[in-house]
Nucleic acid binder design. Structure first.
Lengths: 132, 132
DNA sequence: GATGCAGCTTCCAGCCGATGGAAGGTCAAG
DNA sequence: CTTGACCTTCCATCGGCTGGAAGCTGCATC
């Protein structure tokens, strides 16, 4: 299977697939004409990476997950450890964004948003202690 | 004031301050010896940018906000528009991360995390429809 | 005044994770 | 035989820094 079809099946752009190969994440066979040739198994791996990336795993974590994916002897605990670590990261990010939303939301609420120049948002950013 | 002191007061690394100057975000006077020289007003701007960045505004948005900050005639509505746009982005990100947390959390919950190789996380990533 | 060291300067490279584009080879249809 | 889709490689660019090298400056200490 050529890279274009692989891209359609894995929902990854061809550019990205080539990039993943370049960084040694996934390698492909080559056909006689030099074209990359993807097997069903390759497609599985591509989709696997696509899903893992969209769940927020870094490329390096994908590398780990892929090797666990290929290792039929590995303990599920090894996989769970990575996933739990990631879950913690996601929770931290959500907390951070929520605090941020809170602060910015407060600034927006207190701003009249009219034609006058007084603006609590600018004042807040410029360092005056927010009244909250 | 030298860049080091400016960095301490603005809570920005010197590298970052120089970078901001390089990209035309903030420029500094130069002392006779060639050192950058920061006024109190410069420090305000640096802190302003530092806060805006930490609230998730992009460097380009900081550029806009800075010009609004300097413009005493601007309408607060102009500032509010940018902030509201950003608020929407933050909400979208939170929603995205929450969905992600949900999916990954479900996978983690269903994984025993023991020495056996059966692993719903890997299965989930490899494309088997999640049971949820 | 020599020495040492912190702090400043510039410049160049690299990080992540792609993405865009140029220049050129290949293949199947019409 | 030509067109156009698809493939190849290579090199540049994005954002937002960050690190390091090589070389000034400024100030304290001997």
């Amino acid at each position: 299977m050529n890279i274009g079809a692989a891209a359609r099946q894995s929902k990854l752009p061809t550019k990205t697939i080539r990039y993943y190969e370049e960084i040694g994440l996934l390698k492909a066979d080559r056909a006689a004409n030099g074209y990359r040739d993807y097997s069903e198994d390759d497609i599985h791996r591509l989709r696997f990476v696509q899903r893992a990336r969209s769940l927020g795993f870094s490329v390096d974590e994908c590398r780990q997950l892929l090797s666990l994916y290929s290792d039929r002897e590995r303990a599920s605990a090894d996989v769970k450890a990575i996933a739990l670590e990631k879950l913690g990261e996601i929770d931290r990010k959500i907390a951070e964004l929520t605090a941020l939303r809170q602060t910015l939301g407060h600034l927006v609420e207190t701003c009249h948003g009219d034609s006058r120049p007084e603006c609590p948002i600018i004042e807040g950013l410029s360092g005056k202690p927010a009244s909250h």
